[in-house]
Amino acid sequence: MNGNATTASPSLFERGMLMLREKGDLELYANVFVIGWAVIFTLWQGVGFAVTLGTVFCIWAILSVSLNLVVGYTGLLSVGHIGFFGIGAYGMAILTSDTSYELLRTESIPQFGLPFFAALPICVLAAGVAAVVVGVVFNRFRDDIYVLVSFGFAIIAFNVFLSWRALTRGAYGIPDVQRPQIGSWVADGEIEFLALCVVFLLIVVGISWFLVSSSFGRVLKAIREDEQVAQVFGYQTTYYKLAIWVISAMMAGLAGGLLGSFTTFVDPNSFILLESMLLVSIVILGGLASIRGSLLGALAFVLLEEGMRFITYLPSEFIGQVRQVVLGVMLVLLMLFRPQGLAGRYKL
């Protein structure tokens, strides 16, 4: 007790740093702040804005949760996830759009005319098949080299979207992507589409939670910490890494399919390397190996992205750059003071 009495009380700065490092408090504050921010925006901008925000959030949340399975839980820092997102989006566009009347088209592309619910599983499968091919190659690498080859994949994917004009219409993009339809019911309203996205998000979160809580998830965490020891205890780690890579890519394909249908237009600019970096930033910001963190990170990102539009004194041409600067500054601060992210358990 005497010791306590003689100990100098921490300064305001020290207390601030301590709070940043204590997971529970900061996570709570971050949740309250981000959700409060969302509520304020909704009250300010109305229900229509909230529905759009919610839909975009669901798509990015699916994407960030899926990437967290690979980056956070398994320790494979991939910056190529946007490629699978793009495969999903283009899959949806190619399979469902009707471009026959498109006057601006440069080349005709295959017409499939599939309904949304038939196309979506194909998008997911296409992303999965691509992930198997890419994953078999990626499994030969680790650490820094893994990051570099995943960079390469993101660049290749973007160039395929841009250059394979006979399939993607290149820079012109693909318009008139279908909205979900069951019989005579078409989810062309924003609320219906939001409801559908929420359902898919819940499914993805449920599957992810089940995976990471199971013995399979324990092996992934073991691989993350010490792959060689995991092998010593009988785990063929390449199979585990490939399995989670493919599952994660399929989820990203799902998110891409939803995005294509939501925006009804798909072009290569949505799948540039920068978007991939933003996605990795969301995962790190929310917290590695934390599904909750990924949801929080996605919400914060979407709020930042959508919210910037309402800063009236900011010229519109700078909004994109400012958004990136803000996200960059947040990341630098996090790496300095809280490298495990808002709700994560692992440091990058």
């Binding site: 013995s215 324990r218 965490k221 993350r224 910490e225 995991a230 205890f233 190996a289 358990r345 692992y346």
Partner: peptide, 15 residues
Amino acid sequence: FTHLTIEENLRLGCL
């Protein structure tokens, strides 16, 4: 595996 519990570490030995 420092980010796993003691029981999880042990169970990984015999999965």
